[in-house]
Design a protein around this nucleic acid. Structure first.
Lengths: 196, 196
DNA sequence: CGGTTACTTGACTAGCTTCAAGCCTTGTGG
DNA sequence: CCACAAGGCTTGAAGCTAGTCAAGTAACCG
């Protein structure tokens, strides 16, 4: 979902810079703002009681995030952190709701965005829960490859640790599994760089 | 989300009876209908390549399900099965879209329904992926108890197998974990019946 | 060049799954 | 009312595999 910049500005939104590593909001805090990224990358993740991290999603230019808790008035289930220097537009909840009210076609847009997120989570759930590390990694690589050309091997822009955080596996497991997948020709590894 | 019955009828919806155990749609098939339950219970689940089942959700009187793939025009990621004799209203996609078009306030309703589903999935994901069996079971029991009174122990209307299908664990693991939880006084088990 | 971050490997462990068997409870039909 | 079948529950033993811990190596960046 994304709202044109001029509408956002008209309704009082302000753009703010976030340095790489800084936080936009924290798990368990209440939402007050609608967020939309102008440039950069924001990661949503939740932390378990043991301090382990699970990446819930990565968002980039033109995308908004964190709307469900905002609409529901419930506290955030995850933390938002800039993983690159980013510029993000912030708009107070009330004004966001005014925009929705004044531009009903945005309801539809947002609805499709949500539908798509639910769809992905449903597909992911099946993988999350039961499958082998290899299946988890394959699913991650498939759904997160930049271009959607099925054929060509392209470099994967994620570290082993990031793959681990997405899949819920440990780094060592990711590495060992990737080694096996390399043997099976499912992936290519050159100079520690991963291709899929 | 639920649409009043008279609107549904006006737009050509038909109610149909489904016997316990029968299927409303199958994984990987294309969606053509909007479904809303008049009475009964419908289970959405997906099946892994090894034939293991993961319950994605249970839906009952007044609730609709399967809208995201319908809106997106993508095939179903899960199968819908009546787990009790049920009466379900079916409405063709085009007519469902007409309703949304004619009653824009339904966009908002559906949006909040979706927001809520995303919220739950995000909370669940954290549990799915990393936690111990006990944490998974506690989370399941918490989110699926009928009344939301935090105090009183009430009987859990699910079999061990159903809990296993929801949490992604095996029956034996569920049983053994419940035994430990019983020792800790987290649950009560009387005559094999489970209370939480 | 040096420090930091990412990657890799091995040994060991814990705990979930698997397999196999048996018990309990419920409902049905004679 | 009893017998029996079917489905749900329980238990034990054994195996596997991802997690853990520890150490070391390789790339990247200023």
């Amino acid at each position: 979902m994304n709202i044109t910049e001029d509408i956002l500005i008209t309704y009082g939104a302000v753009a703010r810079k976030y340095e790489k590593g800084s936080y936009l909001f924290h798990e368990d805090s209440m939402p007050y703002y609608f967020y939309q990224i102008l440039s950069g990358v924001v990661k949503l993740f939740s932390t378990s009681s043991e301090g382990r991290e699970l990446t819930q999603g990565l968002f980039t230019d033109g995308q908004s995030f964190g709307e469900p808790p905002l609409l529901l008035g419930k506290c955030y289930p995850s933390t938002a952190q800039a993983v690159a220097d980013s510029v993000v537009v912030k708009l107070r909840k009330e004004h966001f709701e005014s925009i929705l009210h004044d531009y009903p076609e945005l309801y539809q847009r947002l609805l499709y965005t949500f539908a798509s997120r639910i769809y992905h989570k449903a597909t992911a759930a099946q993988i999350w829960v039961r499958q082998t590390p290899e299946q988890k990694i394959v699913h991650f690589l498939k759904t997160n490859k930049a271009s959607h050309t099925a054929n060509a091997m392209e470099q994967v822009p994620y570290t082993r640790q990031q793959i681990a955080d997405f899949t819920g596996l440990r780094v060592e497991t990711v590495i060992r599994t990737l080694m096996k997948m390399k043997a099976k020709r499912l992936v290519k590894i050159d100079d520690h760089k991963l291709y899929y």
